[in-house]
Design a protein around this nucleic acid. Structure first.
Lengths: 223, 223
DNA sequence: ACCTGAACACCGTTCAAGT
DNA sequence: ACCTGAACACCGTTCAAGT
């Protein structure tokens, strides 16, 4: 049943996952579901737990570093692998953020990340702050504020807005120009930014910064 | 009316903001609202726009750097100021992420951040990736995955879970111990982490990394 | 131009009733 | 033990009717 819920969310989005539609997908009335779960919250917790399981399974394939101080490429690979899983379940990030408590299998994932850093010489404090700094990036996603809605955009209206923007927001306009028109460089998807590139760029910025702090045996700034 | 909606969300949460409750707060039937907005989506867009206006007003107080290369402390102050505004509207971050298009006044904010970086010598590409890397942090928030729900936690059950965790997740347990028991160091709120400290730690990690790339006149890695 | 009440299509959920 | 249908309290929203 949870698998059916995941499939439904994958195919038709999280908002299409209702008790009634889930029942229908299972060839059963909505009310029957309450014999197996006590809540819709139970269903949501369940499907989050399911993709968390996928994440730990995929990440589990990745071995430890040959040398403990070589933590960075391993952390990077684990995180990018987690990302691959979450890209198959686009609804998972926002749902994950809305749940009040962490799914148990994710605890294993975070514990393994912590282990990686601790063994590389991170102090407990630094490893702690590192997890916070990575935030959702540790799981392979980062909520983008600029979402490019390419569909149903009127070219005339877009051009007009563009010209109005040029006056008030010159730097944004300049940026928009290279992002939408320039086919080379870091672009991937038509008309938008290359999510994967931007994700890795931000991730490396953080990992490199953390590595630098590790090398300097970072201590807490005096209070 | 939008002010009433913001007040309602501030006081009772976003889920308490319904057309009916908003009407009631204004001493009017819910259906009357449709004379002023065409949708509930309109209301949500409106209140997002309103706090975006608060952000640009607060950030506008902050002057430019004395020297263009001194972009970092100014960027830092702007971002922490934006954070102060968003902390007054706890519902804003998640709503901001769910909206499909960016509120116009936020474009001004992002344009000013871009200007700051460009004038400090950032290439257009680097400034672009910097905005993506900062992500929601540029606006002063970062979605925390671990939410400490201190309320209604049964001490006995917590202790039991703690002991079970100790075996399977030794590093997390060790972390939990310093976070909950140690009253000194980086702790702020009882039983949780110091959100403000963690936010600034992650922010500085990114800003420092970006400054380093700026100094080296960062170029795109060869494709 | 603005407000109202009844109504509709959707939710999650309860409950008594069936097998 | 599992399923069902009717019902309830909530949504957002439409529409004809009022002033």
């Amino acid at each position: 049943m949870l698998h059916a819920a995941v499939a439904l969310a994958d195919e038709r989005g999280l908002e299409a996952l209702t008790m009634r539609s889930l029942g229908q997908a299972l060839g059963v009335e909505a009310m029957s579901l309450y014999n197996h779960v006590s809540n819709k919250a139970d269903v949501l917790d369940g499907i989050v737990e399911l993709v968390a399981g996928e994440v730990v399974a995929a990440v589990g394939e990745i071995g430890p570093p040959a040398q403990a101080t070589e933590w960075k490429p391993v952390a990077r690979e684990r995180i990018l692998t987690a990302r691959q899983v979450l890209l198959r379940h686009r609804w998972a990030p926002s749902l994950l953020e809305s749940r009040t408590d962490m799914p148990p299998s994710l605890l294993a994932y975070y514990d393994s990340l912590l282990a990686l850093m601790r063994e590389a010489g991170f102090s407990l404090d630094l490893a702690h702050h590192a997890l916070h700094a990575l935030g959702s990036r540790a799981l392979g996603f980062s909520q983008e504020l600029f979402t490019t809605d390419d569909k149903d955009v009127d070219p005339d209206a877009a051009l007009l807005m563009f010209q109005q923007m040029a006056g008030r927001f010159p730097h944004l306009t300049e940026l928009l120009k290279i992002v939408t028109h320039d086919p080379g460089s870091t672009l991937g998807r038509a008309g938008g930014c290359d999510d994967q590139f931007e994700f890795e760029f931000g991730l490396d910025l953080l990992l490199d910064g953390l590595e630098r702090l590790r090398e300097r045996a970072w201590e807490l700034p005096a209070a």
